[in-house]
Structures are given as C-alpha cells and as structure tokens.
Design a protein around this nucleic acid. Structure first.
Lengths: 70, 70
DNA sequence: ACAGAAGGTATTATATATCATACCTAAAAT
DNA sequence: ATTTTAGGTATGATATATAATACCTTCTGT
C-alpha cells in the first residue's frame, strides 16, 4: 500500500461515515473544533493528519478511530 | 478518553506488539526508516504522531495499523 | 433573480512532528 | 574490567499540520 493510497483510504472512510450520519463538513468541523480548511484535505487524502485529529473526528462521528483504518 | 490516554494506548500497543515480535527499538526504527528519537516518544505516548508514521511502524511490525487503536 | 448552504481552494502564521546527531545510564556479554 | 547493546534524553534544523481568514463555485430554496 502506497502512502497516497493509505491516506486516501482513511479520508474516504471519514467521508463515507460522515455521509452515513447525514453530517456536513461544516457541522463536523465545528463539532470537532477543527477548521474545514483542515478537514477537507484530510477527507481528500491530501494531508497526513495526526492521531489526535483522527480522535476528534471519530468522536464527532460517534465511532472508534480504528474504523478509519479498515 | 483524554488525548493523553489515547496517545498512551497507541504507544503501548506499539511497544507490546514490538516486544511480541522480539524486536528492539533500534531494529524497528531502522526497518521503518524513522529515527529512534522519534519512535521512543511515540511508544511513550509523548508525541502526537501521524498516519504515515503509524503505517511505517505497522509495516515493520507486520501488522495492520488499526491494531494500534484497539 | 436572489440568498443561503455546501464543498472547496489559497494564503499567512504558528505549533509541532520529524530528522540528525550527540550523549547518558543500566544491563548483559565477553 | 571492558565492551557492547538497549533504552532513553537533549538540541537545533527542517518539514508540515493546523488555525484563521477570505474567497470562489455550484446547487437548492424562495
């Protein structure tokens, strides 16, 4: 698995689960207390985010962070 | 789960699996191509590492990154 | 037609992860 | 006793994630 594919997998999982919840990017960003200018590239797999940012997103999506790696 | 506890969980899982494999920190750091001055504080839960560093460590430990989050 | 919502991009500033290196201690091996 | 190995810390430099903000496009609702 390449680095790029790995980040795209994580981002894609975040997008998929967010949409399953019916949440918008702005809503999740507010709930996480992160900026959408950070969240959007994470979902796109463009940036190599950190454990704690994943924890914030997972908490906002009411899910375990490990789900993002499946 | 606090931020500190989350990072300690991840670091503890890395240490546990590394020792199960009988690998030293130096060996894993070399295999990962990361510095031990980076790996040690990750295992201790002192730094908030990134997805790609977790991927490198998981690959060196022959495991899926999601194991670190369990 | 217009207003608002939603996704997305660009830029600058700041915080911090990582690298590279040197050094230390304790324990084990010889 | 000395050397080696393993874990760990300290520091300065560099790369990059994140914050904060402004702006853009498309689509939907009115």
């Amino acid at each position: 698995m390449t680095d790029k594919d790995f980040l795209k997998k994580i981002g894609g999982n975040i997008t998929r689960i967010r949409k399953q919840r019916g949440y918008t990017i702005n809503f999740v960003a507010q709930k996480c207390e992160i900026e959408k200018s950070n969240l959007i590239p994470i979902e796109k797999g463009r940036i190599n985010t950190t454990c704690l940012t994943l924890l914030k997103i997972a908490t906002a999506l009411e899910i375990d962070a490990q789900e993002f790696f499946k």
